[in-house]
Simulated scan of single mutants.
Amino acid sequence: MSYSTLEIQRNGAVATLWMNRPEVFNAFDEQLIAELTQACQALDHDDSVRVVVLAGRGRHFSAGADLNWMRRAASHGEAENLADARQFARMLRTLATLSKPTVARVHGAALGGGTGLTAACQMAIASDDAVFSTSEVRFGIIPAVISPYVLQAIGPRQAQRYFQSGERFDAARALAMGLVSEVAPAAQLDARVAALAESLCAGGPCAQRAARELIAAVHGRPLGEATDEDTAQRIARQRATAEAREGIAAFLEKRPADWLR
């Protein structure tokens, strides 16, 4: 597929999805939202893609909502705003539920929805010049659609502050709160993203999907016999898969597993 607001770059099994509206700092409007949804769906169904990296061309990752889009939304009624919000929510959920690892490559500004995109990816590496915010309240609105992803990343206590203050915070603060998993000097950002992608490609794809399901099932669950039984069944099922047999055989035979060939 061809896109007017995106560029997809392939490097082996790694696909980098570049938001390509540098003239507006990759702010999103209806077109970018629709194309991000379509591109994520296409990459998810491409078995040759093992890792998806989300990045932004130009000086910034994403400045959030396009001002012209916001201006149009302000003149719309509730029904039209609801339709727009549903499309945005669908895009974020499509990104967040990809069946393969996703990494946000964040530099410069990641404001409002840009923070939401960061949180919707499973992992994020930020350059040390990155700046984040959930600034919606300063426009008289709320970070409603991005809230499930940002809350999952930073927790309700931090959200109480930043959802209400709209303050900007730097990459070091984002790391401390859990929004990003690593901070790198700007000159090393691409190298660190590439290193993480290479590590992710080393894992078995079925095992990685099972690992994500494991996290969703176990997080917040109390210890007890039910949790013991669930986790025991999960590892028993996984050990019986062809992928597990191949992975263990490759280790014992000191050769690459077949998913690395």
Rank of each mutant, 00 (worst) to 15 (best):
Leu252Asn: 03
Ala89Gln: 11
Glu7Phe: 07
Pro185Met: 11
Ala195Glu: 15
Ala42Phe: 06
Glu78Phe: 11
Leu32Phe: 04
Arg50Gln: 10
Ile248Tyr: 05
Arg93Trp: 10
Ala236Gln: 03
Gly247His: 06
Ser165Gln: 14
Gly155Trp: 05
Thr5Cys: 12
Leu189Trp: 12
Ala126Lys: 04
Leu67Val: 11
Asn68Tyr: 03
Leu92His: 07
Gln238Thr: 01
Ala249Gly: 02
Ala124Asp: 06
Ala232Gln: 07
Ala217Pro: 01
Ala42His: 07
Cys201Ser: 14
Glu80Cys: 00
Cys201His: 10
Gln160Asn: 09
Met19Trp: 03
His219Gly: 04
Ala171Glu: 10
Gly56Arg: 05
Met177Gly: 06
Arg192Pro: 04
Asp47Ile: 05
Glu78Ala: 11
Val145Asp: 15
Gly108Asn: 02
Ala34Ser: 13
Gly116Ile: 12
Ala207Pro: 00
Arg255Tyr: 00
Ala13Tyr: 01
Gly166Asp: 09
Arg50Ser: 12
Arg261Pro: 00
Ile125Met: 12
Arg239Ser: 05
Ala104Leu: 10
Gln160Tyr: 12
Arg157Met: 12
Tyr162Lys: 09
Arg192Tyr: 08
Arg71Leu: 09
His45Tyr: 01
Thr241Glu: 04
Ala232Ile: 06
Ala119Arg: 03
Glu198Pro: 03
Ala226Ile: 03
Arg237Glu: 08
Asn20Met: 08
Ala120Gln: 06
Val131Arg: 09
Ala144Gln: 14
Leu179Tyr: 08
Gly224Gln: 03
Trp69Gly: 01
Pro222Asn: 06
His219Trp: 08
Ala73Lys: 01
Ala96Pro: 02
Arg168Trp: 08
Asp128Gly: 02
Met177Phe: 11
Ile142Glu: 15
Ser75Asp: 09
Gly114Trp: 02
Leu111His: 07
Gly116Phe: 09
Ala63Tyr: 05
Ala250Cys: 06
Ala120Arg: 03
Thr16Gln: 13
Glu198Asp: 15
Cys201Met: 15
Leu92Asn: 07
Ala124Met: 08
Arg221Thr: 13
Pro222Val: 11
Ser199Met: 14
Ala120Pro: 03
Gln164Ala: 15
Ala244Cys: 10
Trp18Ile: 10
Arg93Cys: 05
Glu167Cys: 09
Gly77Ala: 04
Gly114Asp: 01
Ala79Ser: 03
Gly108Asp: 01
Val131Gly: 00
Ser99Val: 05
Val193Lys: 13
Ala216Gly: 03
Val49Gly: 07
Pro205Tyr: 14
Asp47His: 06
Thr5His: 10
Ala85Phe: 06
Asp66Glu: 13
Asp128Pro: 00
Phe163Lys: 09
Asn81Asp: 02
Arg157Glu: 12
Arg255Gln: 04
Pro205Leu: 15
Gln164Cys: 15
Leu223Asn: 04
Glu246Pro: 01
Ser135Asp: 14
Ala226Gln: 08
Ala244Ser: 14
Gly12Glu: 10
Arg57Ile: 02
Ala250Asn: 02
Arg90Gln: 15
Ile141Gly: 01
Glu136His: 13
Glu253Leu: 07
Asp66Trp: 06
Asn11Cys: 12
Trp259Leu: 14
Leu43Ile: 11
Arg237Ala: 12
Cys121Gly: 04
